[in-house]
Design a protein around this nucleic acid. Structure first.
Lengths: 203, 203
DNA sequence: CTGGATACTGAACAGATGAACAGTATGCTC
DNA sequence: GAGCATACTGTTCATCTGTTCAGTATCCAG
């Protein structure tokens, strides 16, 4: 669909977008050693016709990728050290850090309520979740065998949810721990959607 | 540290950056109903002094957030359906899809060689990795009990690496599978760094 | 009440920028 | 070889843009 030259120009534009802002017409011309800005203009017109970029006339550095090439719209996901008892998560969001990521990559809808949590302890090492890992959670209904952040006795823990005969239990993923925690007053705060496991020393 | 007005201007700039490119000086002035672009310039100077933004003189729409406010610099990570036998990953990169994410969030250095892989099969369900999940891998040295993408007989699989008495084995995380795969000619392609587990129906 | 930081107005300028018009060259298809 | 899309050069123009200089107003601290 795109010619080799068009693809190169598209790549250059994407490069610029990823590092901050789109290149200007003359910056593109300089990079490809075009003597005339019009060479760029006509390329941009073609790219726009083919539907891979979008622009608004007249505004400088105004190129956006369209379709599958689009640079993802980042979501800022609140990174909570530990969820407090109250759960009005919204209150906490402004204070802490944020994790920027592309919701589409995580299979999250644009409207999904999402937060992140630093995992503590070693009760989930069997599921590949180690102390210090960051866990992405979505506020949604939990299913059997989902890993969930749950509130027990005012403290929030990460465990696997087991639903048997209509009863819910929490299961640690580490032989060192009791297998099933009876979960009365079980409050599911979020369902596991992703894991960020930085390269650090493990035992 | 920042005054209320400075914070508002910083927020407006971030808004612009997130949706494509920084606002121009006069766009900022218009938004805040400043009659003079100089009002903006002096604000920008202050913001730059306080270290929350960075600019290069003369270039239009050239505002970047600095420090903790920084909009993350996305990395485009190649998403490989399955790693082919040859492993010159660079060759494959151009073809497929890309996953955009913030390397810092994944504990990846800016220079880390990274790729993503769609997990297939159910051999790692015990580690929370299901069929269809996306796994982020870093090309680096593997340690004992790391989850790795490894090449065996020309096919690439995801397994846990077990190093015992100087010998390396691969272990599936599912009781259905043989526990230890003797790994002669073991080629580690990448080490597990992250997991994207979209919200889809599981068994 | 004085000084300094903040928060502006107003005017002006050089260079950057998107866009248009006119024209050339090349390769491909029918 | 006629027609057409692509891929440019070269020039000009109005507008946008960052920046500077000069000046005013407000508020808070010493």
């Amino acid at each position: 669909m795109l010619t080799a030259k068009q693809q190169k120009i598209l790549d250059f534009i994407r490069e610029g977008l990823v590092r901050g802002s789109a290149p200007s017409v003359r910056e593109i011309a300089r990079h490809f050693r075009f003597a005339s800005p019009n060479a760029v203009i006509s390329h941009l017109r073609l790219l726009e016709q083919k539907g891979v970029i979008r622009r608004q006339a007249g505004r400088s550095r105004n190129i956006q990728l369209a379709g599958g090439n689009a640079v993802p719209s980042l979501r800022a996901i609140p990174l909570l050290g530990a969820i407090p008892a109250g759960l009005p998560v919204e209150e906490q969001e402004r204070a802490g850090e944020f994790l920027h990521l592309d919701p589409a990559a995580f299979g999250l809808s644009a409207t999904a309520r999402t937060f992140a949590l630093k995992a503590r302890g070693d009760s989930m090492t069997g599921a590949g979740i180690y102390d210090g890992d960051t866990v992405i959670l979505e506020v949604t209904e939990a299913r059997h065998r989902d890993i969930v952040a749950a509130l027990i006795d005012g403290a929030s823990t990460l465990k696997r949810l087991i639903i048997q005969n209509g009863e819910s239990f929490l299961k640690a993923e580490n032989p060192k721990y009791e297998d099933l925690l009876p979960a009365r007053e079980l409050l599911i705060q979020g369902v596991f959607r992703g894991l960020l496991s930085p390269n650090r020393q493990r035992l």
